[in-house]
Structures are given as structure tokens and as C-alpha cells.
Amino acid sequence: MTDRICVGAIAGAYGVKGELRIKSFCATPEDIENYTPLWSEDGSRQFALAILRPIKNGFSARIADVATKEDADALRGVNLYADRDQMPSLPDDEFYHADLIDLEVYDTGGVLLGRVKTVQNHGADDLLELQLAGTSATTFVPFTKAAVPTVDLSAGRIVADPPLGILPETDKG
């Protein structure tokens, strides 16, 4: 487990007076403001975020020392991380995406399928992108109870039962 969780990203400038366009990844989007301080991915920068108002696909916000559009644009693409101890506890069947990355994924027969590379969401359910074992290929498995019946964070493993057609066919003679 990581010490920090990605809770949002800076999407660039909003206007010309140093306001930022913020995308929140929190279940309650406004909560991003409560996780202070926020950090850059490498931990080298710290941010105190103040939401000004909702805008399309996010929030307009201020960060101290960002006074111009150029300052704001320079931060475009910076992911914002909160300390794990500030985050709420989750129910047993919910997980922070950061906790799923790099977990080994096995099928229901105990065969290693691969490792979780990323967790994606394109508007419906979450998808686990698996780096397939022994290859450079990836595939996506729906992160549903049917397709992923077991997530064991303490053992560092997931048991998956992917729908037919998700995994590449293997030649078994």
C-alpha cells in the first residue's frame, strides 16, 4: 500500500488570474478541498487548495503562489495526492485504486493471469487493466463481483473469473 492516494489532477488554467481547473477523483468531488495538504506525485511539492466554484468537469480553484495564467498552465497535468491517513476508511467491498495496482491476478484455478497495471473508468464500471503473465500484452477485466470475486489486499492478490473472450486464446493442441 502507498502512503498517498491520488485524489485529483490539475487540468490547467481557468481564466487569466491564476485560477486553476481541478478534476476531483473523490467519491464526493468537493471533498478534495478537505485533504490538505495535497502533494505532487513525487512529494516534492505541496499544495493548499481552495475551491472557488464548480465549473464544467471540475472546479475552479486557487493555490497559493499561483498568480498568473502562465503559473497555472505550468501545473497542468500534475496529479494531486492526499496522505492515506486523511482518507476515510472504506467498506470491505471497496478499494482505493492505488491499492489494486501491482496486485497479482489469478484465475479461479490458481493460475497466474498477470498483474494489475492500471484501474480505468470510462463512465461505467471500473476496469482492471492486466499486464498478462509472460507477455507484454494487456487486457481489461470488469471490476465487478462476478468477474473479480476476491480481492485480498493482505495477501497481495486478486482472484478473477473473467468473462469468456477477455483473455487471449491459448493453444492447447
Rank of each mutant, 00 (worst) to 15 (best):
Y35K: 01
Y35R: 04
Y35L: 09
Y35G: 03
T36V: 13
P37Q: 07
P37I: 04
P37V: 00
L38W: 03
W39Q: 07
W39L: 12
W39E: 04
W39C: 04
S40E: 09
S40L: 03
S40D: 08
S40M: 05
S40T: 12
E41N: 03
E41A: 13
E41T: 14
E41W: 07
D42G: 03
D42C: 02
D42E: 06
G43P: 11
G43S: 14
G43K: 08
G43N: 11
S44C: 06
S44Q: 10
S44Y: 02
R45H: 13
R45P: 05
R45G: 06
R45K: 14
Q46N: 13
Q46A: 13
Q46V: 10
F47W: 00
F47C: 00
F47A: 01
F47P: 00
F47M: 03
F47L: 03
F47T: 00
F47Q: 00
A48E: 06
A48K: 08
A48G: 07
A48W: 03
L49G: 08
L49P: 03
L49Q: 06
L49S: 01
A50N: 07
A50K: 09
A50W: 00
I51S: 09
I51Y: 07
L52A: 12
L52Y: 07
L52H: 12
L52D: 14
L52C: 14
R53V: 12
R53G: 12
R53F: 10
R53W: 09
R53H: 15
R53D: 11
R53M: 11
P54S: 14
P54Q: 12
P54D: 12
P54F: 04
P54V: 11
P54H: 08
P54M: 07
I55Y: 15
I55A: 15
I55H: 15
I55C: 13
K56P: 13
K56Y: 15
K56G: 15
K56E: 15
K56H: 14
K56T: 15
K56C: 15
N57E: 13
N57V: 07
N57P: 09
N57Q: 14
G58W: 00
G58Q: 01
G58I: 00
G58M: 08
G58R: 00
G58V: 06
G58D: 01
G58N: 08
G58T: 03
F59N: 06
F59P: 05
S60I: 06
S60L: 06
A61C: 05
A61K: 02
A61D: 03
R62C: 04
R62P: 02
I63T: 10
I63R: 01
I63N: 09
A64N: 14
A64R: 13
D65L: 07
D65Q: 07
V66D: 00
A67D: 11
A67G: 14
A67E: 11
A67Y: 12
A67T: 13
T68I: 07
T68C: 07
T68H: 01
T68E: 05
T68Y: 01
K69T: 05
K69S: 09
E70T: 09
E70H: 03
D71T: 03
D71G: 09
D71K: 02
D71W: 01
